[in-house]
Every structure is written in C-alpha cells, then in structure tokens.
Design a binder for these strands. Sequence first.
RNA 1: GCAGGUGUAGCUCAAUUGGAUAGAGCAUCGGUCUACGAAACCGAAGGUUGCAGGUUCGAGUCCUGCCACCUGCGCCA
Length: 609
Amino acid sequence: MSLDPETRLKDTFAAAIATIGGDAAHGMDPAIRPSGKPEFGDFQCNAALGLAKKMGANPRDVAQSLIDAADLSDLCETPVIAGPGFINLTVLPAALQQAMDVMDTEALGVTPDSDPGVVVIDLCGVNVAKQMHVGHLRSTIIGDSLARILTRLGNDVRRENHLGDWGLPIAMVLHELRAAGVDLDAINLTDLDAAYREAQAKAKLDAAGLDAARARHSGPHRIAELEAQNEGASASRAAAAETLVALQGGDEALRHDWQKLIDVTMTAVQDASDKLSVTLGPEHNCGESTYRDDLQPVITHLEEGNFAHVDDGALVVDMPDRERPLLVRKRDGGFLYATTDLAAIRRRTQQTGAIRCIYAVDARQRDHFRDVFDAARIAGWGVNADGHDVELHHAAFGSVLGPDKRPLKTRSGTNATLSSLLDEAIARGTAEVTERSLRASSPTHGLDHTALAAIGRAVGIGAIKYADLSGDAVKDYVFDMDRMVAFEGDTGPYLQYAHARMCSILRKGGEDVSESPWGLEDVTERRLALLLLRYDQVVHAAAASLQPHRIAGYLREIAEAFSAFYQACSVMQAESDDLRRSRLRLCDLVRRVLADGLQLLGIDAPERM
RNA sequence: GCAGGUGUAGCUCAAUUGGAUAGAGCAUCGGUCUACGAAACCGAAGGUUGCAGGUUCGAGUCCUGCCACCUGCGCCA
C-alpha cells in the first residue's frame, strides 16, 4: 500500500490481465499512462485494445472484464470505458494523500537502481594545447548531468576526462615551440592554440593518403582537407616523429616541457569548470598518456586470441557485419586512437569493474565508437572482471550551430571560445539580476555586489545549461545567446524563478508543516501532486535512456503547474489554517523536487534572484 | 559510391517509445500587478508531422521506395 497510484494501477491491471487473458496475455504491458486530457481522468489503461485483439473479443467487453477483475475500490473512482476501449481512471483523494505522505521523504520517492554498480563516464575530452570550444561545453554539461543522475540512483560513478595528451599532435606542438625557442613558462593557452594550428598545417600533408582517399570515395570534406595540405610536410612530420619517440622514450627535458603544456591547458579547463560549476577537476584527469603502457598488451591480447590479423601491413580487427575493419596498429608499428580507446575499455571493465561505460562524445564519432565497442566485445571485454555484462554506450550529441545554422562563430567571425561564451552569459545574467534588485519590492533589494554576482552567475550559466539539456542531445543544436538570456519562457531562469518564489513563500510561512494533512482539492493542487508522484519514474527513464532532457521537460511541467497553482491559490491568505499548512507543505515538496531535479541537471537553484 | 543521422507551427524545440482532438516557448494579437515576486498567469491565432505507398482497431512513432540537408568512410585524433 505504499506505492504511488500509477505503480499500483500497473500492478492491479497486470493481475487483472493475467486473470482474464490466460496464455494470450502472458507478459502483457498493462499500458497505464497519465491521461492526455483532464476530462479523461488522471490515468488511462490502454491494455484492453491489444488484449481484445489477441482474444478475438470486443475491446469494450474486454475493458469491462478488466474492470471487474481489478480491485480498485480504495484507489480509484468507478472507472469509465471510453472510445474504442480505453479505461479512464480517477484517483481517490485519500489514495493521493497517502501517496504524497509516502513520497515526502528525503529521497523524494526516488528508489535506487535495481542493479547498481560502477559506471565510468567519459566527458569533456579536451585536447592539450587546444582552446576549448562549444563541443567540449556540450560533452561536459551532458556528461556531468548523466553522472549526477546515475549517482542519484545509487551507482558508483567515475568521471574521466580522457585528455588528448599523447601522440603525434602533441609532439608536433612540442617540436614547434622548442624549435621557435618559446618560453614555456610564460605561454598561455591562446599562444599554445596558435602553435597547435601552425604545427598541424605544416605537418599534415599526406599524398599517399590523398590518393587512398580518392580511391576509396572518401567524403569531399576529407579530400579537401588533404588537398589543403602541402609540401614540406614530410620534413615536419619526421621532426615531430623524432620528438615523439624521444618523449615516449622518457627524455627528461621533453617530459618537463610536455607537462607544462598540460598545466597550461588544465588551468584553462579548471577555470571553465569552475564557471560552469560542474564536478570536474584534476582528480578526473585520465589522459591518453596514462594508457601508453597498456597499448602493447592490448595488441598482444588481440593477436593471441586471433581476434586480429595483418592486412596490408597493418593489424586490423574484422567486423562481422561490415566491410571495413578497425585498424589497431599501423604498418609502421605505431598505435592509433582506436588502440587507446580499446585500452581504456579494457582497464575500465577489467580493472575498474565498470558495468556501464558511457561516452559523452560528438555524434560524428559514431562509426568509430561502433567499431571500437564491437572490437572490445570480440576481445572479451563486453563482460567485466566480475562476469557482469557491460553496457558500452556512446551518448552522442549533435553539433552546436549559430543562429545561421552554420558552426558557431562570434560576432567578429572567429571561432567562439568557450570562456568568451561563459563570460558573456555570466555578464548578462548578472546585469539582469542587478537591475531587478533595484526595485524596492524585490527580495534581492539591498543585496551586496558579491551576492548579486553569485546569483547572476547561476542565472547565466543556468540558461546555457538548460538550453543544452532541454532538447534531445543527438540533434544538432542552435546556440543563440540572445534567446537564452531573454530569461523568459522555456528557460533555465524560468525554473529558477519558480524555485525562488517557492522559497519566498516558505520564508513567509516559517512554520513546520511536515506533518500537516494534505488538502489538494483545487485542480491545480491535484495536478501538482500527480506530477510530483512521477518523479521517481522520470529519473529512472532518464537514466535508462541516458537522456537528461526528460528531466528538463518534467521540471518545466512542474514549474508550469506550480505557476498555475500560485496564480489560483493563495497560500498565506488561504481560507483556513489547515489549508494554509497543506499548501505550505505542497510548496515545500515542490521546491525540494525542483531543486533536486535541477541539481541532476547541474543547474543551481538560488533562493532569491 | 557506401554507411549513419536529421526532417514536426514563421523561428527554437517537445510528444511518457503504437493510443483519444500532435503539445510548449519565442515572435503576433487581446486580457491580468494598491492582492504571497509580472523573469509570471489566462486567452486568440498559427499544422497535409519532407513526399508516396504499406502494416492495424489506431502511425509523428514500425516497414518499403523516393526527396532535402548534415555527418562519417584503413595507417590523423
């Protein structure tokens, strides 16, 4: 009797289906859904239609049989059969109140995962010596949210920032900077970024690769890229390769300089993480370089297990359902990023014991991860050290576009850097908060500059995060700062504002209502209550599908329902003391759910704004 | 050429994974502040869900074929 109405309805109708349906009904979904429209009640059961089909009976008759077989006396009003065979259900006030009592705990009704375990989340994925951009923003925001959601459900989540800190590109930058005699102690990330681009441009010609790309019908993008590279490259390549060999060999001076590159990069990353208030720090660094001693063992395992074979001089893993194999070792004996990714999966599953490995990475790497995941399973790493199946999941996200639907640029036309975007959002949030604080009636009136700046940051960053997390991540997404910081309508600040208003009422209320009996008679109160009771289910759905936007959409519904309630029902001037206390308790529970949900998205919820 | 993704209101996005009349926000128009915070609320208008078939009680969702855009495609990461 301690379950929410929806779960109870599912159980009850599942039993009724088994009773009247016999074998035909085995394992059938009771198809309990929140009703689409108020006139259809609170919930509907859609199982009669499918069941009637299997039984060769009339759907409305089957619906009646289900109702007769289901004991709903203490849960619902008399069910109504509608349309072709829908069963409309309205929850009794007492059942609603009871469910609300049960939910009103610290956990807010959220139950742990049935099979929790170690989950590794690969996020951020910066490259050393490269400026962070909006792609890293998405990876970081989405990965951080997924980490929070899975942690909330009792999993042991390990964030890993898989830095691009190893291999030829880094060696090229090192070579470039050393050859130019640059003082690495005085350099900043902008300089590093410039050196990186220059080194890339110098070294990237590959005539053989161009021919191969043409012969293999590579995309025009790839061919254009190769054509853009020109002679002189082989010399640069050779020099960079020498640097790489020396670095890998442990050359002390090189290692020293290499570490400086990393330090400069990570200082900027930490700055961005702090501004964003994401849980990401040096302790989550787990760069490619940390796998350097694992690469040969990976290759040995693949060779000894006959999972890979030599093709045209390279070592490849064949895919069962695809022509193109996965390259894991070059003809010259060098390793590739696929090798590193395999080493990471190997460590995460065989040593860390992960049951889920999640990659918050750009959707353009879809094919790559498909190959790597399949190869990992072939190699036997689809099962962890404890014999538990491992879910390998690419949480892909689309590209970030500007309002013109082209890759995002700043007003000056350059590639937008992450820090410039964050600074702008924070500045605009702060300006907005400060302006509103000037009104004498505002609860923020009189707050000092520091307090207003903290709120402004929460508002500006909240706007960016909500814009990113409120849509389906796999789709390309239009980053429009003007729209985000309008702070009106379906935005992060809308949710924060609703939360702040709840805080405001609770401050005025100032009494302990944790045991007060529920009223919930107004339609807006009922709607809020029914929504709140879905929280557990929503969090689990978001975790299972790895889609934070489900939580975002739910929270928007909560905020809308609260605003409607706020408009319709006076709390402090309620008609009776009991009703005031009931409404205060409702505000308190809504506030906690909203704050908890925003926390799962990584969005701060100020008490005033 | 092959593979994958996307296509929903003027714009930006949803749609509980096959359920009833496809929902929000922005923009437009019209109402609400001496009333717990108007960053809000209520209402109007806005749709052949890219096109054409198919599956069934029922399709934005599933299957087939087209169209458009995006992305990827062996020795870079």
